[in-house]
Design a protein around this nucleic acid. Structure first.
Ligand code: ZN
Ligand code: ZN
Ligand code: ZN
Ligand code: ZN
Lengths: 145, 145
DNA sequence: AATCTAACTGAAAAATTTTTTCACTAACCC
DNA sequence: GGGTTAGTGAAAAAATTTTTCAGTTAGATT
């Protein structure tokens, strides 16, 4: 079990949730993923750790982790989205358009821009979502010759 | 008919699409909207302009406008999304969390950050999605006393 | 203006995705 | 170990999206 997985389990406990086997399976599926996971992905992968894992529990656990801020939605193509674990605090994600390999991005530099924007528009800015698309080094090596 | 609506119709023609009444109804619904529109929103609003407008045509027209780059997906809360017309070129959207009033944002300043990111990660950066949430001036006046 | 024809349409059906319900199970506190 | 109650999976229901298809209409051609 890696650090992230362990800290997630701690976080559940701290919020009064029970550490059930199905939940642990969902968390392990997410913790070992290298790409954004759809609900179906999580279900399929999670069954490796808990054979009876139901789809409903995947939905419920995802919702719980989102509420705890531990999971981020990552938008894939036009309509589909997946989920990726995220470190606490302000992070974004960079996803390979070819293989979906995902990495977390810290050090967002949007503050100045958003301050300006607030002044120009009169909106009070309360948050933002940034997702970055690219081609990972492995895919560049394979496909950009 | 406003400029944006007219240029959209021109764009359709230029791409060899027919200017049918149902399509015009969808486009007008989008052109007059002040918030991101879901498929159901577009359908309901579009029927004001074409009473027989079918839901299927809304789906098809939305897909078409997305492919033409004239329409952007805007993610609302966790799972839902809507559509908003977007000017050609690189723009983002700022949405009021309370009333959903949406405005287009130009002058994205992410280039330097993304260049750095490319260098740090080895990814070739190919695009990004930025959505900004806030409270519009009207809602601030009403609810922030 | 009448005619032609393929692009386009809406309704219905089918497929897919998500939520609700409910009787049963197991995690955790004692 | 035993009790309690949050949590579970299966099934049903609801909601959303896609496919199919016979009929319609926009726009080109006379
Ligand atoms: Zn890749
Ligand atoms: Zn940021
Ligand atoms: Zn507002
Ligand atoms: Zn940008």
């Amino acid at each position: 079990m890696d650090d992230r997985e362990e800290s997630l389990l701690d976080s559940l406990k701290a919020h009064g949730y029970r550490l059930t086997k199905p939940r642990q399976a969902v968390i392990r599926a997410l913790a070992t993923a290298v790409k954004p996971m759809t609900v179906a992905d999580i279900h399929a992968e999670g069954r490796r750790y808990c054979a009876e894992l139901g789809l409903v529990t995947v939905y419920r656990t995802v919702e719980m982790l989102l509420a705890l801020g531990q999971l981020h939605i990552v938008h894939l193509d036009a309509e589909r989205h997946g989920y990726a674990l995220a470190s606490p605090g302000h992070v974004h994600h960079l996803v390979c358009s070819r293989c979906r390999r995902i990495i977390e991005v810290t050090g967002c530099t949007l503050d100045g821009f958003l301050d300006d924007l607030a002044e120009r528009t009169g909106y009070r800015i309360t948050g933002h979502r940034l997702e970055i698309a690219g081609i990972c080094p492995e895919c560049r090596a394979k496909f950009e010759s």
